[in-house]
Amino acid sequence: MLESKRRAIIFLALSLILAATAGFLFLKKIKDLNSQLGEMVDIYVASTDIASRSLISPDQIKTMQIPKKYADHSYVTDKLSLKNQVTVVPLSEGDIITKNIIKPAATVRDQNNRLVTVYASGNIVFDQQLEALDRVDIIVSHEVNGKPATEVFMKDVPVAMVAKTDDHFKGVALEMPFEQVPAFIHQQHYAEVMRILKANVGKGELGIPQPFQEPQPKETPAPAAGEKSPSAPANGQQTPAKPAAPSQPTAEPSKSAQPTSVVKPEGKS
């Protein structure tokens, strides 16, 4: 074998070994960096321009992956947390959405209404924990002409939002017309006791069973084949319905009248 050919083979073998070693070291370095950075996490950014004070819609956001090590608690990682939220500053495409630039959208349904925050305190008592969209009645106890009085102050007030800390109920935001706000705040500050009751307001009946309601009459079973119905006439013609007799006033039973039957409890004679 020629000397030049032998050297070429040696150099080729050394280059392959060095290339394999470099590739192995590169992959090892990447693996070490990934282990230091940790796993990746999705954060939400603006996929298009978002105007200030406008409601964020799903088509205006997209996800971007960053190492979990650098995912600050201010980043938005839950899509549901952007529901019914608006931005306080305008966003451009690609801007990261953080929790300190979003706030809940106004839940006031009427532009003439206002939200008044009410927290539980010594003189404000909530009889039940409330949820958004509930309705409440407000009862106040105060002095009228030097005498204690308890009266209904407001009825059917909608609950716009609920304040909680670690799932512990703190208070609510009530929606009311602006004209009623000063009177309510006055009672909130100076009433001796204000009790807020959950109102059972809704359309339709609740369908609560009545334990003392008389049972409905059972349907008469259909006659078997070949048998005649006891109420049907023999000639098969329908008998016209008789007009109902006018109701007569029921005479008041005398004191000596006894019930026709008495049901005795079981086990007693």
Results as ranks from 00 to 15, higher is better:
3 E>Q: 13
4 S>Q: 15
4 S>N: 14
4 S>K: 15
6 R>V: 13
6 R>G: 07
8 A>E: 15
8 A>C: 15
9 I>W: 12
10 I>Y: 04
12 L>G: 15
13 A>C: 12
14 L>M: 15
20 A>C: 04
21 T>F: 11
23 G>W: 07
23 G>H: 07
24 F>A: 12
26 F>C: 09
28 K>V: 03
29 K>Q: 06
30 I>P: 00
31 K>C: 00
31 K>H: 01
33 L>E: 07
34 N>K: 00
36 Q>M: 01
37 L>W: 02
38 G>A: 04
38 G>E: 00
39 E>G: 04
41 V>F: 01
41 V>H: 01
44 Y>M: 03
46 A>R: 05
47 S>C: 09
47 S>N: 14
49 D>C: 11
49 D>G: 14
52 S>R: 02
53 R>W: 11
55 L>R: 09
57 S>Q: 15
58 P>L: 10
60 Q>G: 03
62 K>T: 13
62 K>R: 12
62 K>P: 05
64 M>G: 00
66 I>L: 00
69 K>I: 00
70 Y>W: 01
71 A>V: 02
72 D>H: 08
72 D>P: 04
72 D>N: 10
75 Y>P: 02
76 V>G: 05
79 K>D: 08
80 L>C: 06
80 L>Y: 08
81 S>V: 05
84 N>Y: 07
89 V>I: 15
90 P>W: 02
94 G>H: 02
95 D>S: 05
95 D>V: 04
96 I>S: 05
96 I>E: 04
97 I>Y: 02
100 N>C: 14
101 I>K: 06
101 I>P: 04
102 I>G: 10
102 I>L: 10
106 A>S: 07
